[in-house]
Design a protein around this nucleic acid. Structure first.
Length: 603
DNA sequence: CAGGTTAGCACC
DNA sequence: AAACGGTGCTAACCTG
């Protein structure tokens, strides 16, 4: 056995590397004395847990003063003892346990279901204290950031530098070093061990700092994280043939249109500089500049030229779109696919400052919604249909409920059309649905939730600034409760530096942007409405059918024979009442592919 | 030249 | 007085 001593906050802490079955006996002795709680971490070959050849390399257990590193990659008793320890310990502390649990489930075959009930994640804790990363002025949420802020800045720098240093030693990149580094590498082992000591220490420090209003969220966030790891693990079935064909078609499109653009002197349509140059040479006036002073070639300008049948603009746009679609979506799915033809998302349940989730792997939140083509790549299981349940006007309903605006509450109570109501406030009671005025009402409703004003409304509607200003004024007059609420939140945020959401989450608000307090409140509370709904549906037994959460929606694959029933059940579980407002849900049953929800002609 | 930043374009 | 919130991904560009 090798033992290293490191100093943390003035204390000597020890990292033991288990090197023999005799050492393993000593480790077991340590475990026996620490069965109540152990900190836990893993080192693996990378982040793509479901890829071929993925391996677990080290497993670490520890407490505030001691860490033990087990070389499980060697197999044998190291694995057996790891499994025994994980099953026996009463509480597991870690940082982003969602990752380690998925790894353990995949590589050692311990179902996550066995581990989640005893999980305590210091990342969840950290995000309830301060959800911002350092770039946004926060403490940060990485282990390095937390160590720097709460424990020891020097140690944080060492942590940061370590893997880069080893990568240099191995003449490789940071991303690849994890599968290459020698299992016996001393520094690799030391820092693997430290990754249990740090969370063990952070837990106690952070525990005292969670706002009282947010304490109830600790358990809630663990449950949400749990359910989302089940979705990650299950994955989403890919229609391989369709996806491969689509990739080829997009590739052909890209080549065809790139060639046309090249004839105009633009070798690379993805270089904004080159496109700008050709446009200028063709007499197009470009006056907007980016913050760094470059000429801006916005989509609006290209769109306008395309409408005028400008051959170059058309080629640029089509080539760019084909490439974007292929590389970002279609080839991404094919690369991400596991041996069973499934893609696995990685859901970060507390990504945004507001608590909103983010989804990588399958970037479900950013897939084109105007078109079924990309979503058609994903299909329901054999004998299943795609089901989607979402909230009706979730953010506006939440806004009505939280602001207490009487007109808005009344509108939802009587199922009136809020966009029409705003349009009528601005342009008169004669305004009808699906008119230009109606659209302006809709845009204004959303702009106000986002904190936008007349300028934004003007840009998006095409109205003049003065006309847009009138619409915004009409909004504020028709929904005075909303305006008052926005002012109140802005003042609160200026006074305290944060606001507290309906569900008790504390959200920091920048002083220079107090107007965004309303949006944070609405966006964050809406996120929690969705999560509460997902949890109720999960507890009712619908977990196995869930595929992806998408903001105000849950996407599922359900046995076709019961899809209609199941969709309505989930919709019922997800609907929620906040004060005087019912946050209603919509259930939709599609056919075989996700794309079927986006077109009546798609299977 | 790896790694970080910027610009642009997807979504709610 | 007015104030556009949040995300991911790629390619190009910049930097040490």
């Amino acid at each position: 056995m090798q033992t290293w001593t490191i100093h943390v906050q003035g204390d000597p802490v020890r990292v033991h590397r288990v090197e023999s079955y005799e050492d393993l006996e000593l480790f077991k002795e340590f475990v026996r004395k620490n069965l109540r709680v152990l900190a836990f971490d893993t080192e693996t070959t990378g982040l793509d847990i479901y890829s071929r050849g993925y391996r677990l390399r080290l497993v670490q257990f520890g407490n505030k003063n001691e860490a033990w590193v087990l070389p499980v990659e060697l197999g044998g008793d190291y694995i057996t003892v790891t499994i025994q320890t994980l099953m026996a310990v009463e509480k597991i502390v870690g940082k982003n346990l969602a990752f380690d649990f998925k790894v353990i489930d995949r590589c050692l075959g311990i179902p996550m279901e066995k581990l989640w009930p005893k999980a305590f994640d210091v990342e969840i804790q950290a995000k309830l204290i301060d959800p911002r990363d350092t770039l946004k002025g926060g403490i940060g949420v990485s282990l390095e950031d937390l160590v720097r802020h709460y424990l020891d800045p020097n140690l944080a720098d060492n942590v940061k530098g370590l893997m880069s240093k080893i990568a240099k030693e191995y003449k490789t990149t940071k991303a690849k070093v994890f599968e290459k580094v020698d299992l016996n590498h001393p520094e690799y082992n030391i820092y693997a061990g430290m990754d249990t000591i740090f969370p063990a220490r952070l837990e106690g420090i952070q525990n005292k700092l969670i706002p009282a209003s947010a304490v109830q969220l600790i358990h809630f966030e663990h449950e949400i994280a749990e359910v989302c790891t089940y979705m990650d693990r299950g994955g989403f079935l890919l229609d391989l043939e369709y996806t491969q064909n689509l990739s080829m078609e997009l590739h052909e499109d890209e080549e065809k249109y790139s060639e046309i653009a090249a004839r105009f002197g633009c070798e690379n349509v993805n270089s904004t500089d080159q496109v700008a140059e050709v446009l200028l040479s063709r007499g197009v006036v470009l006056k907007d500049r980016t913050p760094t002073g470059k000429l801006q070639v916005s989509k609006t300008i290209l769109d306008k030229l395309v409408k005028e049948n400008d051959e170059f603009a058309i080629a640029v746009q089509k080539a760019k779109k084909a490439r974007k679609w292929r590389t970002t979506w279609v080839d991404g799915f094919l690369n991400n696919m596991d041996d069973n033809g499934r893609c696995h998302a990685s859901i970060n349940t507390l990504q945004a400052r507001t608590g909103r989730m983010s989804i990588t792997g399958i970037p479900a939140q950013t897939l084109p919604a105007s078109d079924y083509t990309i979503r058609k790549c994903f299909v329901a299981e054999e004998g299943h249909s795609i089901v989607s349940v979402d909230y009706k006007g979730q953010e506006l309903r939440v806004l009505a409920a939280l602001s207490g605006d009487k007109t808005m509450i009344d509108a939802f109570k009587h199922d009136l059309n809020l966009h029409l109501l705003t349009a009528q406030a601005a342009f008169g009671e004669h305004v009808l649905k699906d008119t230009k005025e109606y659209k302006a009402g809709k845009i204004t409703n959303f702009a106000r939730v986002f904190g936008g004003g007349a300028k934004v409304v003007a840009e998006q509607t095409g109205l003049t600034f003065m006309q847009a200003k009138k619409v915004v004024e009409a909004f504020d007059k028709r929904y005075p409760g909303v305006t008052n609420y926005a002012d109140k939140l802005a003042k609160l945020s200026e006074r305290d530096g944060y606001i507290t959401t309906y569900f008790g989450r504390r959200l920091p608000v920048d002083h220079s942007r107090a107007y965004s307090a309303l949006n944070y409140m609405v966006q964050s509370s809406s996120r929690d409405v969705t999560c509460r709904g997902i949890l109720r549906a999960y507890r009712a037994g619908f977990g196995p059918y869930m595929r992806l959460p998408v903001h105000d929606e849950i996407l599922m694959s359900m046995p076709t024979a019961r899809a209609e029933w199941g969709a309505n059940e989930v919709a019922r579980h997800m609907s929620e009442t906040i004060g005087p407002v019912f946050i209603d849900t919509d259930a939709e049953v599609g056919r075989r592919s996700w794309g079927s929800l986006y077109s009546p002609d798609v299977d």
